[in-house]
Design a protein around this nucleic acid. Sequence first.
DNA 1: AACGCTCTTGAATCACGTA
DNA 2: TTACGTGATTCAAGAGCGT
Lengths: 376, 376
Amino acid sequence: MPALRRRGARSRGGTTSVQKDVVKQGDCIALMEAMPEASVDMVFADPPYNLQLEGDLLRPNNSKVDAVDDAWDQFDSFAAYDDFTRRWLRAARRVLKDNGSLWVIGSYHNIFRVGTALQDLNYWILNDVVWRKTNPMPNFRGRRFTNAHETMIWAAKDKDARYTFNYDAMKRLNDDLQMRSDWLIPICSGGERLKNDKGEKAHPTQKPEALLHRVIMAATKPGDIVLDPFFGSGTSGAVARKLGRHYIGLERDSDYIAVAKKRISQVQPITDMEMIDTPAKRQEARIPFGWLIEHGLLEPGTVLHGPDKRWRAKVRADGTLITADFKGSIHQVGAHLQGAPSCNGWSFWHVKADGKPVSIDVLRQKLRANLPKTLN
Amino acid sequence: MPALRRRGARSRGGTTSVQKDVVKQGDCIALMEAMPEASVDMVFADPPYNLQLEGDLLRPNNSKVDAVDDAWDQFDSFAAYDDFTRRWLRAARRVLKDNGSLWVIGSYHNIFRVGTALQDLNYWILNDVVWRKTNPMPNFRGRRFTNAHETMIWAAKDKDARYTFNYDAMKRLNDDLQMRSDWLIPICSGGERLKNDKGEKAHPTQKPEALLHRVIMAATKPGDIVLDPFFGSGTSGAVARKLGRHYIGLERDSDYIAVAKKRISQVQPITDMEMIDTPAKRQEARIPFGWLIEHGLLEPGTVLHGPDKRWRAKVRADGTLITADFKGSIHQVGAHLQGAPSCNGWSFWHVKADGKPVSIDVLRQKLRANLPKTLN
DNA sequence: AACGCTCTTGAATCACGTA
DNA sequence: TTACGTGATTCAAGAGCGT
């Protein structure tokens, strides 16, 4: 039960305290209603999509697609889904700080209803952001376009809110061009995809950490609290912890909670504030340096050195480098250290791997090979 | 013997006739209500976006909605926009043929409300398609992501509609990969952008012809009728005419109508069917397997084998196959042997010719080419 | 170690015509 | 309206395995 407080005493920075870095089991609406109001800086929500699947779907080779048919995704009608949506969005709005913001991810099955509800509840939409998948599932029957993206809505609490947007960090993550509303990121697979002890996927819709990296870097500051009312396998919590933010996860399913807790416990937070604070080749696909970090080819805090080890700098989470007295892009820092007018950071900087220096350009090539022609 | 005929030759509704290749002036809802029902094959709509800064939103009765800045008026504005949206979508649904489809383009200001209305009116969403702009307007204040895309919703009249989708044409447009739901297309500028006699742009939101080219090629056949209830500068009409389709444009503003009419009059339609027809495997003349035997391309008793020689069957004179324990069609026997729910016998079975395996589909193509064109 | 090949898999509202 | 037979339909990655 929230403490009795005077109207207007609501702080913008939180005199109220809320339990941080926890996962709570239960219905997210009830759990949010029990939280103090205006207590979190950002909400990230991956609600049920309300897919309406009828029969089985077979691939051309007659194998069956493992569909999302879990009970938690079943609703009787659009009206029921709308009611659920409005209730959790209203509860989220109450616990959100006045200058916080909210992200919701969805597909065409549900995102229009979410967006309508947001607007009706007086949220103020800032962007719709398209997550373009490098490797979506194809359309097996040839009856539609390949459903190759999902949509995120980013909204402030109201029209006049002074929400956080780390414009420079985003720009640097994108090689000094403004970050656009369409993001190209692979789906979660391979080693990142959590499995249960039977080797099955632990959660049917686990989101990639690269996606959450960009969301959290864009719209929070170190120390901020990220609330995820549909915590699932805990991607938002894991990335928040890694980036020096706090998390609160709400989840009904105890199996998912166990997976998420174990996962988060293995995350090594970046404690060096310098690494995470955010004060910001033409024919081939352009790969911003920041993408190496988003995709885990470099960890924030990694030490890079120049060709002959005279020069060193550390990698920050937003894709800039930092030395004792200077920070900037890989090119700017390289030029500064050498006292040169310019420097190609891609060829200048190296990272130690198994004792041997590896050019970061090698990492770029590796990433480029993994991000196919859909880049263009 | 079944007659050789094109598959999918069903009539697409339309005993009623409708005026084609015209632009009508007036309120689109009233104009659609005056049209015969089930009379157009596709609707493309670029409705007002309800940009909240513009304040020029008109209610259904054409009264102007005052500029709004508080929550109550905002709700009033959304309600008016929703009402308008539902009315024109309902009218459009009535004039759409049962197997037609509808496209609506919008931005985050209005697209969620459009999508919700579509679902509520029992339209069946097929895809949301993202138009990624190569050259969007940058974000000048640095407070959001560059708004670099718009969203189109593609919907059928209902869940069971047999809408047109030229899968093969789309695949060829995309280097023989399935067309995805994210399209990269430049905004309309340069010579394509229509100007008035003062050199100002003739319409504020003229859409690029490349966008309409892909929409119309994807979802209509030559000779189909495309209805655009917010005709504006007439991009949909110009592209429809160019591609051998018909258009119906509805528009309130007489200046826009003048621009559109002049523009369309200058379009040279492509008359060569070879240029605009989009042959699909599904629509090719059906050749029963037995014809291969009748026409001497296969002898009764010939041994067929599967892709890897594990499976064998003999051809009987009536066009069935026989194995030790089973007989049936090429499809049934292929499925039975593999223990699969189904099998495309045309691609499964091969015959030895000069020591090399030849797919029976090759024989089918040979026969199809030799049959008189008039039957095709 | 480095390839090359096969097999598996991912938030999916995934036939159609004829009798 | 329903039942049934034909036959159309997949892309990018990762894992595993053999050379």
